Deep mutational scan, measured.
Amino acid sequence: HYVEVNGKKIQATSAEEAEKIAKKFAKIYNATVLDLGNYYKVT
Rank of each mutant, 00 (worst) to 15 (best):
T43H: 10
A26W: 07
S14Y: 02
T13V: 12
Y40H: 04
T43A: 09
L36E: 06
V3P: 00
Y29P: 04
K27M: 13
V42M: 04
I21R: 01
K8R: 14
A31R: 04
K41Q: 10
A22S: 03
A12M: 08
D35Q: 15
F25Q: 02
H1P: 10
I28C: 14
E19V: 09
V42W: 05
E17S: 08
V33H: 02
K20F: 11
G7M: 04
N30V: 05
A18N: 01
Y2D: 01
K8A: 08
E17H: 13
K24R: 14
Y40I: 08
D35C: 14
N38V: 09
Y40F: 13
N6P: 02
I10H: 06
Y39R: 04
K23R: 14
A22M: 04
T32H: 10
H1V: 10
N30E: 05
A18P: 00
E17G: 05
K9P: 04
G37Q: 06
H1D: 02
E16V: 10
L34N: 06
V33W: 08
A22R: 02
K24F: 15
K24H: 15
V42G: 02
I28E: 09
V3I: 07
K27Y: 12
A15L: 14
G7Y: 05
E4D: 07
I10V: 07
S14H: 03
A12L: 07
V33M: 06
Y39F: 09
N30H: 13
A31L: 14
A12V: 09
N6H: 11
F25M: 09
F25R: 00
E16K: 12
Y39E: 03
E16F: 10
V33F: 06
K23A: 10
K27P: 00
A12R: 02
K23M: 13
K41V: 15
F25K: 00
E19C: 15
G37C: 09
I10L: 08
V5K: 01
V33R: 01
G7W: 05
T32R: 09
L34P: 01
Y2L: 03
Y39I: 08
T32K: 10
N6D: 07
S14W: 07
K27I: 12
E17C: 13
E4V: 12
E4H: 05
G37W: 07
I10Y: 12
A15M: 15
K9S: 05
G37F: 07
I21G: 00
E17T: 06
K8G: 05
T32Q: 13
E17L: 08
T43N: 08
F25A: 02
L34M: 10
H1N: 07
N30C: 11
K23W: 14
G37H: 05
I21V: 06
V3W: 03
I28H: 10
V3E: 00
K27L: 14
A15I: 13
Y40K: 04
D35W: 15
Y29F: 12
Y40P: 02
A18F: 03
E4Y: 10
A31Y: 08
E16G: 08
A12I: 04
A26T: 03
A22C: 08
V42Q: 03
N38C: 13
K27Q: 12
V3G: 00
D35Y: 15
T32I: 14
Y2A: 03
D35G: 05
K24C: 15
L34Q: 11
Y29N: 04
I28F: 13
I10N: 00
K23Q: 13
K20N: 10
K20Y: 12
K27H: 11
V5I: 13
E16L: 11
N30F: 08
E17R: 07
F25Y: 13
Q11C: 15
I10P: 00
T13M: 11
V3F: 02
V3N: 00
N6V: 05
D35N: 14
V3M: 02
T32V: 13
Y29M: 11
K41T: 07
K20T: 10
K27T: 10
K8C: 15
A18I: 03
A26D: 00
Y39K: 03
K20I: 10
V5D: 00
N38D: 11
A31T: 10
T13N: 13
T43Q: 11
L36A: 05
Y29T: 04
Q11G: 09
I10T: 02
A18Y: 03
I21P: 00
K24G: 08
T43E: 12
K24I: 14
V3Y: 03
A26Y: 05
K27C: 13
N30S: 08
Y40M: 05
E4K: 04
A26H: 03
I10A: 01
F25N: 00
K27F: 13
Y29G: 04
Y2Q: 02
S14N: 10
K20P: 00
V3K: 03
V33L: 07
H1R: 07
E4Q: 07
E17A: 10
K9I: 15
V42L: 08
E19L: 15
Y2R: 02
E17N: 08
T43D: 09
K41G: 03
K20Q: 12
K20R: 14
I28D: 06
L34H: 08
E19Q: 12
A15H: 14
F25L: 13
I28S: 06
K8V: 13
Y40G: 03
L36T: 04
E4A: 04
T32C: 15
T13E: 12
A18W: 04
Y29D: 02
F25D: 00
T32P: 06
E4N: 04
F25S: 00
I28A: 09
A31G: 14
L34T: 08
N6L: 14
K27A: 13
H1K: 12
Y29V: 03
N38I: 10
A12H: 02
I10R: 03
A31F: 09
Q11N: 12
A31D: 01
E16I: 11
A26F: 05
T32M: 11
Q11F: 15
Y2M: 05
A22Y: 04
N38P: 07
Y29A: 04
A31I: 06
I28N: 05
T43K: 08
Q11E: 09
D35P: 06
E16A: 13
V42Y: 03
K41W: 06
G37T: 04
A12E: 01
T32N: 09
E16P: 06
